[in-house]
Protein backbone atom coordinates (compact mmCIF):
# COMPACT_ATOMS: atom_id res chain seq x y z
CA UNK A 1 0.00 0.00 0.00
CA UNK A 2 2.82 2.33 0.81
CA UNK A 3 4.13 1.65 -2.66
CA UNK A 4 0.78 2.66 -4.06
CA UNK A 5 0.93 6.00 -2.32
CA UNK A 6 4.54 6.32 -3.38
CA UNK A 7 3.76 5.84 -7.07
CA UNK A 8 0.99 8.41 -6.82
CA UNK A 9 3.29 11.08 -5.56
CA UNK A 10 5.92 9.97 -8.08
CA UNK A 11 3.65 10.43 -11.07
CA UNK A 12 2.53 13.82 -9.86
CA UNK A 13 6.15 14.84 -9.49
CA UNK A 14 6.99 13.79 -13.03
CA UNK A 15 3.91 15.57 -14.30
CA UNK A 16 4.97 18.77 -12.65
CA UNK A 17 8.50 18.51 -13.96
CA UNK A 18 7.25 17.75 -17.46
CA UNK A 19 5.06 20.80 -17.59
CA UNK A 20 8.00 22.77 -16.26
CA UNK A 21 10.07 21.51 -19.17
CA UNK A 22 7.43 22.20 -21.81
CA UNK A 23 6.49 25.66 -20.59
CA UNK A 24 8.07 28.22 -22.91
CA UNK A 25 10.36 30.38 -20.85
CA UNK A 26 9.66 33.88 -22.11
CA UNK A 27 10.08 36.86 -19.86
CA UNK A 28 7.39 39.46 -20.25
CA UNK A 29 7.39 42.95 -18.86
CA UNK A 30 4.56 43.77 -16.47
CA UNK A 31 3.12 46.19 -19.05
CA UNK A 32 2.99 43.44 -21.59
CA UNK A 33 1.34 41.13 -19.09
CA UNK A 34 -1.30 43.76 -18.36
CA UNK A 35 -1.87 44.26 -22.09
CA UNK A 36 -2.32 40.53 -22.57
CA UNK A 37 -4.82 40.46 -19.75
CA UNK A 38 -6.86 43.34 -21.10
CA UNK A 39 -6.95 42.07 -24.67
CA UNK A 40 -7.61 38.48 -23.67
CA UNK A 41 -10.65 37.27 -25.61
CA UNK A 42 -12.63 36.51 -22.46
CA UNK A 43 -12.13 40.04 -21.12
CA UNK A 44 -13.06 41.61 -24.45
CA UNK A 45 -16.25 39.58 -24.58
CA UNK A 46 -17.21 40.52 -21.02
CA UNK A 47 -16.69 44.20 -21.71
CA UNK A 48 -18.63 44.05 -24.95
CA UNK A 49 -21.53 42.43 -23.07
CA UNK A 50 -21.80 45.55 -20.93
CA UNK A 51 -21.34 47.88 -23.91
CA UNK A 52 -24.06 46.12 -25.91
CA UNK A 53 -26.40 46.42 -22.94
CA UNK A 54 -25.77 50.16 -22.66
CA UNK A 55 -26.19 50.63 -26.41
CA UNK A 56 -29.49 48.77 -26.38
CA UNK A 57 -30.65 50.91 -23.46
CA UNK A 58 -29.81 54.10 -25.40
CA UNK A 59 -31.50 52.87 -28.57
CA UNK A 60 -34.66 51.79 -26.76
CA UNK A 61 -34.94 55.14 -24.96
CA UNK A 62 -34.36 57.17 -28.13
CA UNK A 63 -36.48 55.30 -30.62
CA UNK A 64 -39.42 53.73 -28.79
CA UNK A 65 -41.94 56.51 -28.29
CA UNK A 66 -43.40 55.37 -24.91
CA UNK A 67 -39.97 55.16 -23.36
CA UNK A 68 -38.93 58.79 -23.85
CA UNK A 69 -39.25 59.61 -20.13
CA UNK A 70 -36.67 57.01 -19.23
CA UNK A 71 -33.22 58.58 -18.81
CA UNK A 72 -30.44 57.34 -21.10
CA UNK A 73 -27.28 55.87 -19.49
CA UNK A 74 -25.28 59.10 -19.52
CA UNK A 75 -27.97 60.96 -17.52
CA UNK A 76 -27.94 58.22 -14.89
CA UNK A 77 -24.18 58.41 -14.78
CA UNK A 78 -24.25 62.17 -14.29
CA UNK A 79 -26.91 61.81 -11.59
CA UNK A 80 -24.42 59.91 -9.44
CA UNK A 81 -22.49 63.15 -8.94
CA UNK A 82 -25.58 65.03 -7.80
CA UNK A 83 -26.14 62.69 -4.87
CA UNK A 84 -26.06 64.21 -1.40
CA UNK A 85 -23.57 61.75 0.05
CA UNK A 86 -24.64 61.98 3.69
CA UNK A 87 -28.34 61.46 2.92
CA UNK A 88 -27.60 58.71 0.47
CA UNK A 89 -25.42 56.70 2.84
CA UNK A 90 -27.92 57.21 5.63
CA UNK A 91 -30.59 55.57 3.46
CA UNK A 92 -28.24 52.74 2.56
CA UNK A 93 -27.50 52.00 6.20
CA UNK A 94 -31.17 52.21 7.08
CA UNK A 95 -32.00 49.52 4.53
CA UNK A 96 -28.96 47.46 5.42
CA UNK A 97 -29.87 47.60 9.10
CA UNK A 98 -33.38 46.34 8.33
CA UNK A 99 -32.10 43.59 6.04
CA UNK A 100 -29.53 42.32 8.49
CA UNK A 101 -31.87 42.47 11.51
CA UNK A 102 -34.47 40.50 9.58
CA UNK A 103 -31.88 38.06 8.28
CA UNK A 104 -30.35 37.32 11.65
CA UNK A 105 -33.76 37.11 13.33
CA UNK A 106 -34.72 34.65 10.61
CA UNK A 107 -31.69 32.51 11.40
CA UNK A 108 -32.13 32.87 15.14
CA UNK A 109 -35.70 31.60 15.00
CA UNK A 110 -35.78 29.63 11.76
CA UNK A 111 -32.64 27.55 12.27
CA UNK A 112 -33.66 25.98 15.61
CA UNK A 113 -37.14 25.29 14.25
CA UNK A 114 -35.59 23.68 11.18
CA UNK A 115 -33.31 21.55 13.35
CA UNK A 116 -36.26 20.53 15.53
CA UNK A 117 -38.38 19.55 12.53
CA UNK A 118 -35.52 17.74 10.86
CA UNK A 119 -34.23 15.97 13.94
CA UNK A 120 -37.30 14.96 15.92
CA UNK A 121 -40.11 12.96 14.41
CA UNK A 122 -42.63 14.17 16.98
CA UNK A 123 -41.80 17.84 16.39
CA UNK A 124 -41.91 17.16 12.66
CA UNK A 125 -45.51 15.98 12.97
CA UNK A 126 -46.39 18.86 15.28
CA UNK A 127 -44.78 21.73 13.37
CA UNK A 128 -44.33 20.79 9.75
CA UNK A 129 -48.00 20.76 8.61
CA UNK A 130 -48.44 24.28 9.94
CA UNK A 131 -45.24 25.47 8.25
CA UNK A 132 -46.36 23.78 5.06
CA UNK A 133 -49.72 25.58 5.24
CA UNK A 134 -48.29 29.08 5.68
CA UNK A 135 -45.27 28.77 3.39
CA UNK A 136 -46.98 29.13 -0.02
CA UNK A 137 -48.28 32.60 0.93
CA UNK A 138 -45.92 35.12 -0.68
CA UNK A 139 -44.26 37.26 2.01
CA UNK A 140 -45.58 40.46 0.44
CA UNK A 141 -49.13 39.33 1.18
CA UNK A 142 -48.30 39.72 4.86
CA UNK A 143 -47.90 43.49 4.63
CA UNK A 144 -51.45 44.30 5.84
CA UNK A 145 -51.17 41.88 8.77
CA UNK A 146 -47.79 43.25 9.80
CA UNK A 147 -49.54 46.56 10.42
CA UNK A 148 -51.84 44.78 12.84
CA UNK A 149 -48.98 42.99 14.57
CA UNK A 150 -46.82 46.04 15.24
CA UNK A 151 -47.58 49.70 15.87
CA UNK A 152 -44.02 50.79 15.22
CA UNK A 153 -43.30 51.10 11.48
CA UNK A 154 -39.66 50.07 11.92
CA UNK A 155 -40.83 46.84 13.59
CA UNK A 156 -43.29 46.22 10.76
CA UNK A 157 -40.52 46.43 8.17
CA UNK A 158 -38.16 44.24 10.17
CA UNK A 159 -40.95 41.71 10.67
CA UNK A 160 -41.44 41.49 6.91
CA UNK A 161 -37.73 41.04 6.20
CA UNK A 162 -37.56 38.44 8.96
CA UNK A 163 -40.48 36.66 7.40
CA UNK A 164 -38.70 36.60 4.04
CA UNK A 165 -35.64 34.97 5.61
CA UNK A 166 -37.54 32.56 7.85
CA UNK A 167 -38.90 29.98 5.42
CA UNK A 168 -35.83 29.43 3.24
CA UNK A 169 -33.84 28.91 6.45
CA UNK A 170 -36.33 26.45 7.94
CA UNK A 171 -36.83 24.60 4.69
CA UNK A 172 -33.22 24.12 3.79
CA UNK A 173 -32.26 23.17 7.34
CA UNK A 174 -34.96 20.49 7.34
CA UNK A 175 -33.95 19.37 3.85
CA UNK A 176 -30.27 19.28 4.73
CA UNK A 177 -30.88 17.23 7.87
CA UNK A 178 -33.27 14.75 6.32
CA UNK A 179 -30.91 14.33 3.37
CA UNK A 180 -28.00 13.16 5.53
CA UNK A 181 -26.68 9.76 4.46
CA UNK A 182 -27.97 7.26 7.06
CA UNK A 183 -24.55 5.63 7.28
CA UNK A 184 -22.97 8.73 8.82
CA UNK A 185 -25.16 8.87 11.97
CA UNK A 186 -25.02 5.08 12.15
CA UNK A 187 -21.24 5.13 12.08
CA UNK A 188 -21.32 7.89 14.68
CA UNK A 189 -23.56 5.85 16.96
CA UNK A 190 -21.22 2.88 16.70
CA UNK A 191 -18.34 5.17 17.61
CA UNK A 192 -20.14 6.12 20.79
CA UNK A 193 -21.48 9.66 20.24
CA UNK A 194 -23.96 11.09 22.72
CA UNK A 195 -27.23 12.60 21.47
CA UNK A 196 -25.82 16.11 21.51
CA UNK A 197 -22.63 15.00 19.76
CA UNK A 198 -24.72 13.22 17.13
CA UNK A 199 -26.37 16.54 16.33
CA UNK A 200 -23.39 18.86 16.57
CA UNK A 201 -20.61 16.62 15.32
CA UNK A 202 -22.41 14.65 12.63
CA UNK A 203 -25.87 15.81 11.57
CA UNK A 204 -25.18 19.56 11.37
CA UNK A 205 -21.80 19.34 9.61
CA UNK A 206 -23.29 16.89 7.12
CA UNK A 207 -26.26 19.19 6.51
CA UNK A 208 -24.24 22.43 6.45
CA UNK A 209 -23.88 22.76 2.65
CA UNK A 210 -27.63 22.87 2.16
CA UNK A 211 -28.19 25.04 5.23
CA UNK A 212 -25.86 27.68 3.77
CA UNK A 213 -27.53 27.38 0.38
CA UNK A 214 -30.76 28.24 2.21
CA UNK A 215 -29.18 31.27 3.89
CA UNK A 216 -28.08 32.55 0.50
CA UNK A 217 -31.65 32.36 -0.76
CA UNK A 218 -32.80 33.98 2.49
CA UNK A 219 -30.61 37.07 2.14
CA UNK A 220 -31.93 37.57 -1.41
CA UNK A 221 -35.55 37.44 -0.27
CA UNK A 222 -34.78 39.81 2.61
CA UNK A 223 -33.73 42.47 0.10
CA UNK A 224 -36.88 41.84 -1.89
CA UNK A 225 -38.97 42.37 1.22
CA UNK A 226 -37.15 45.44 2.47
CA UNK A 227 -37.68 47.27 -0.84
CA UNK A 228 -41.36 46.37 -1.00
CA UNK A 229 -41.92 47.32 2.65
CA UNK A 230 -40.06 50.64 2.38
CA UNK A 231 -42.01 51.66 -0.72
CA UNK A 232 -45.26 51.26 1.21
CA UNK A 233 -44.12 52.45 4.64
CA UNK A 234 -42.55 55.80 3.56
CA UNK A 235 -40.04 55.55 6.37
CA UNK A 236 -36.78 56.02 4.50
CA UNK A 237 -34.44 53.45 3.05
CA UNK A 238 -33.46 52.66 -0.51
CA UNK A 239 -36.94 51.40 -1.41
CA UNK A 240 -38.44 54.68 -0.29
CA UNK A 241 -35.71 56.60 -2.14
CA UNK A 242 -36.78 54.96 -5.37
CA UNK A 243 -40.45 55.51 -4.73
CA UNK A 244 -39.99 59.17 -3.71
CA UNK A 245 -37.93 59.99 -6.80
CA UNK A 246 -40.57 58.26 -8.90
CA UNK A 247 -43.31 60.50 -7.44
CA UNK A 248 -41.28 63.64 -8.17
CA UNK A 249 -40.41 62.23 -11.62
CA UNK A 250 -36.68 62.34 -10.98
CA UNK A 251 -35.98 59.22 -12.97
CA UNK A 252 -32.16 59.27 -13.07
CA UNK A 253 -32.24 58.96 -9.29
CA UNK A 254 -34.65 56.03 -9.51
CA UNK A 255 -31.99 54.28 -11.57
CA UNK A 256 -29.24 55.16 -9.13
CA UNK A 257 -31.32 53.71 -6.29
CA UNK A 258 -32.01 50.54 -8.22
CA UNK A 259 -28.34 50.11 -9.08
CA UNK A 260 -27.34 50.62 -5.46
CA UNK A 261 -29.76 47.94 -4.28
CA UNK A 262 -28.35 45.61 -6.92
CA UNK A 263 -24.75 46.19 -5.85
CA UNK A 264 -25.35 45.97 -2.10
CA UNK A 265 -27.64 42.97 -2.51
CA UNK A 266 -24.92 41.21 -4.46
CA UNK A 267 -22.34 42.11 -1.79
CA UNK A 268 -24.58 40.65 0.92
CA UNK A 269 -24.95 37.47 -1.07
CA UNK A 270 -21.19 37.21 -1.55
CA UNK A 271 -20.71 37.81 2.19
CA UNK A 272 -23.04 34.94 3.11
CA UNK A 273 -21.28 32.77 0.54
CA UNK A 274 -17.88 33.55 2.06
CA UNK A 275 -19.02 32.65 5.56
CA UNK A 276 -20.56 29.45 4.20
CA UNK A 277 -17.33 28.52 2.44
CA UNK A 278 -15.45 28.97 5.68
CA UNK A 279 -17.77 26.47 7.38
CA UNK A 280 -17.61 23.97 4.52
CA UNK A 281 -13.92 24.10 3.66
CA UNK A 282 -13.94 20.39 2.92
CA UNK A 283 -16.16 20.98 -0.10
CA UNK A 284 -13.81 23.07 -2.22
CA UNK A 285 -10.64 21.12 -2.17
CA UNK A 286 -9.96 20.78 -5.84
Amino acid sequence: MATNAQTMTDTSDTLVSQTAVWKPVVKRSSWEQLKRKIFALATVRRISSVLIFLALWTVVVRFIPNFHQIPPPEQVFLAIFKIKVSVFFFEIFRSLYRVLSGFFLGILIGFPIGVAIGYSRILNYLLFPAVEMVRPIPPIAWIPLSVLFFVNIESQIIFLTFYGAFFPTVYNTVGGISGVDIRLPRAGMSFGVSKAQLLFRIILPAASPQIFAGLKIAIGITWLMVVAAEMIASKGGLGYLIWYNHTVMNYPFVFVGMGTIGVIGALCSVGVDRVGKRFTKWLDIF
Binding site: D181, R183, L184, A187, I202, P205, A206, S208, T280, W282
Partner: peptide
Amino acid sequence: EMALFPWL
Protein backbone atom coordinates in the same frame (compact mmCIF):
# COMPACT_ATOMS: atom_id res chain seq x y z
CA GLU B 1 -18.72 2.98 -0.57
CA MET B 2 -17.32 5.70 1.64
CA ALA B 3 -18.71 6.47 5.07
CA LEU B 4 -15.86 8.59 6.40
CA PHE B 5 -17.00 11.95 7.71
CA PRO B 6 -16.21 14.20 4.74
CA TRP B 7 -15.89 17.35 6.88
CA LEU B 8 -13.06 15.89 8.96
